Amino acid sequence: PDLGLTQLFADPNLIENLKKNPKTSEMMKDPQLVAKLIGYKQNPQAIGQDLFTDPRLMTIMATLMGVDL
């Protein structure tokens, strides 16, 4: 199971919303991170391994779920 990750990354406004959010806007200036996020739309399971190697993803996930870290 993808634990709902498919829906989190399926939002067509995902990148724009993250660019507008004060907690994630600075991160979204990294083209490699943006490319990763776009890739998760097609393969949400890929985030599982990346969560352990890129701490920014935890902040992004929390933001998408509405959790304040």
Score class of each variant (00 low, 15 high):
Lys29Tyr: 04
Asn21Trp: 04
Leu33Tyr: 02
Phe9Gln: 02
Asp50Glu: 11
Asn43Glu: 06
Lys23Met: 08
Gly66Tyr: 09
Leu3Gln: 11
Leu8Lys: 05
Leu8Trp: 12
Leu37Gly: 00
Gly66Ser: 10
Met58Ala: 12
Leu37Tyr: 00
Gly48Leu: 13
Lys29Gln: 11
Leu33Ala: 01
Lys41Glu: 05
Gly4Thr: 14
Asn13Tyr: 13
Phe52Pro: 13
Leu8Glu: 03
Gly39Met: 14
Met61Lys: 04
Gln49Gly: 11
Met27Cys: 03
Gly48Glu: 13
Met61Ser: 03
Asp11Gly: 06
Ile38Tyr: 10
Met61Leu: 13
Gln7Pro: 08
Thr6Pro: 08
Pro31Trp: 06
Thr53Val: 10
Ala46Trp: 10
Val67Thr: 11
Ser25Met: 12
Asn21Lys: 02
Pro55Lys: 14
Gln32Ile: 13
Met61His: 05
Ala46Cys: 08
Glu16Tyr: 07
Lys29His: 09
Leu69Val: 11
Pro55Ile: 13
Ala62Val: 10
Thr24Ala: 03
Ala10Cys: 06
Tyr40Phe: 11
Asp2Ser: 12
Ile38Glu: 15
Asn21Tyr: 06
Glu26Ser: 07
Asp30Glu: 03
Lys20Asn: 11
Pro1Thr: 15
Asn43Tyr: 09
Asp68Val: 02
Thr24Arg: 00
Ala62Leu: 10
Asp54Ser: 02
Ile60Pro: 00
Tyr40Glu: 01
Glu16Ser: 08
Leu14Ser: 04
Glu26Ile: 05
Asp68Lys: 01
Leu5Glu: 05
Thr63His: 10
Lys36Gln: 09
Lys20Leu: 12
Leu69Glu: 15
Ile15Thr: 02
Asn21Ser: 06
Asn13Met: 08
Pro12Met: 05
Pro44His: 09
Ile38Gly: 06
Asp2Tyr: 05
Met27Asn: 01
Leu64His: 03
Ile38Lys: 13
Lys20Gln: 11
Leu8Ile: 13
Ser25Thr: 06
Lys19Trp: 05
Asn43Ile: 03
Gly4Cys: 09
Lys20Val: 09
Gln42Val: 11
Val67Glu: 14
Leu57His: 01
Pro22Val: 04
Leu18Ile: 03
Phe52Met: 14
Ile60His: 01
Met65Trp: 05
Ser25Glu: 13
Ser25Pro: 00
Phe52Asn: 07
Thr53Cys: 05
Lys20Gly: 11
Leu64Val: 09
Lys41Ser: 14
Leu14Val: 10
Gly48Arg: 14
Asp54Thr: 01
Lys36His: 05
Ile47Pro: 05
Ala62Ser: 15
Gln45Phe: 07
Lys36Asn: 05
Pro44Arg: 01
Lys41Gln: 13
Gly48Ala: 13
Met28Lys: 00
Val34Ile: 10
Lys29Arg: 14
Lys36Glu: 04
Thr24Glu: 00
Asp50Thr: 05
Thr59Gly: 04
Leu69Met: 15
Gln42Asn: 15
Asn43His: 09
Pro44Thr: 09
Asp54Leu: 01
Lys29Trp: 04
Ile60Gln: 00
Asp11Met: 04
Gln42Cys: 07
Ala35Cys: 05
Gln42Ile: 10
Pro31Glu: 13
Asn17Cys: 05
Asn21Gly: 03
Thr24Pro: 00
Gly4Arg: 09
Asp30Val: 02
Lys36Ser: 07
Lys19His: 10
Phe9Glu: 01
Gln32Met: 14
Leu51Pro: 05
Leu8Pro: 04
Glu26Met: 07
Lys36Asp: 04
Leu33His: 00
Leu57Cys: 03
Met65Ile: 09
Leu3Cys: 10
Leu3Asp: 06
Gly39Asn: 11
Leu64Thr: 03
Asp30Phe: 01
Asn17Gln: 09
Asp54Pro: 00
Leu14Glu: 01
Pro55Arg: 05
Leu69Arg: 01
Thr53Leu: 09
